Simulated assay, not measured.
Amino acid sequence: MRVVEIENYTITEVFVGDDERARGYIVTDKNNNEFLYFFDVDRTEFKLTSYDVKENSQQLIEQINLSEKWLVSDMYDFIKVINDGNIDGGPANQIQRIRYSYGSCVNGRRGVYQAHFFLGFQITDWVRTIDENSPTGQQATVGCNELYRLDRSISAN
């Protein structure tokens, strides 16, 4: 079992049965050992499920094997990612986060894209952000000099 510390967090591998690879990761507060998150990496069904203890919420990301980060991260071996320093520039002090990016400005508007990050490592590809107010599921857009919203913690939803 491997354990790694990053910023204020301790990440510990979790094994199931005789598995040779970690099935999940427990994230605790390094200062008080408080259990904060659990991440289940299902490398057979290609799903990543996160559970936020404080918010009592979970999030499912499917088809993780299709992400460009799948092979680079040795199939989401988060301990290896952290030990190798393969952080994508996201804020490592935030456990799970959505970051936004923008397309080119056309006719005074630009499209909004989003990706999910775990401790600074990008775990999904950039995808179109769907406008929450659009009845037809249109992509969110903003003015050329506007922000859609600030990057946000997943649990803040």
Rank of each mutant, 00 (worst) to 15 (best):
F46C: 01
F46I: 00
L48T: 06
L48G: 05
L48D: 03
T49F: 04
S50I: 04
Y51D: 07
Y51C: 04
D52G: 07
D52Y: 12
V53H: 12
K54S: 12
K54T: 11
K54E: 14
K54H: 09
K54R: 15
E55N: 15
E55D: 12
N56I: 07
S57H: 06
Q59F: 12
L60D: 09
L60H: 05
I61A: 07
E62F: 01
Q63L: 09
N65D: 14
N65C: 05
L66R: 15
S67A: 10
S67F: 01
E68Q: 05
K69Y: 07
K69D: 02
K69V: 00
L71I: 12
V72L: 10
S73C: 03
S73K: 07
D74W: 05
D74N: 15
D74K: 13
M75Y: 11
M75V: 04
Y76V: 07
Y76Q: 09
Y76C: 08
Y76M: 08
F78P: 01
I79Y: 03
I79K: 01
K80T: 09
V81Y: 03
V81Q: 07
V81D: 06
V81E: 05
I82A: 08
I82P: 00
N83V: 04
N83Y: 06
D84Y: 11
D84R: 14
G85R: 06
N86T: 00
I87H: 01
I87M: 04
D88I: 04
G89K: 00
G89Q: 01
G89S: 00
G89E: 02
G90L: 07
A92I: 12
N93M: 02
N93V: 05
Q94V: 15
I95W: 04
Q96S: 13
Q96Y: 14
Q96C: 06
Q96T: 08
Q96G: 06
Q96K: 13
R97L: 13
I98H: 11
R99K: 10
S101D: 15
Y102H: 09
Y102V: 12
G103M: 11
S104F: 01
S104W: 00
S104I: 03
S104C: 02
C105H: 06
C105Y: 04
N107M: 11
N107R: 13
R109N: 11
R109Q: 14
R109I: 07
G111V: 04
G111E: 12
V112H: 01
V112A: 02
V112R: 02
Y113S: 13
Q114N: 14
Q114D: 10
A115N: 03
A115Y: 03
H116G: 01
F117A: 08
F117T: 08
F118H: 05
F118N: 00
F118A: 00
G120A: 03
G120Q: 04
T124P: 00
T124K: 06
D125R: 13
W126R: 11
V127I: 13
V127T: 14
R128M: 09
T129M: 02
I130Y: 04
I130T: 10
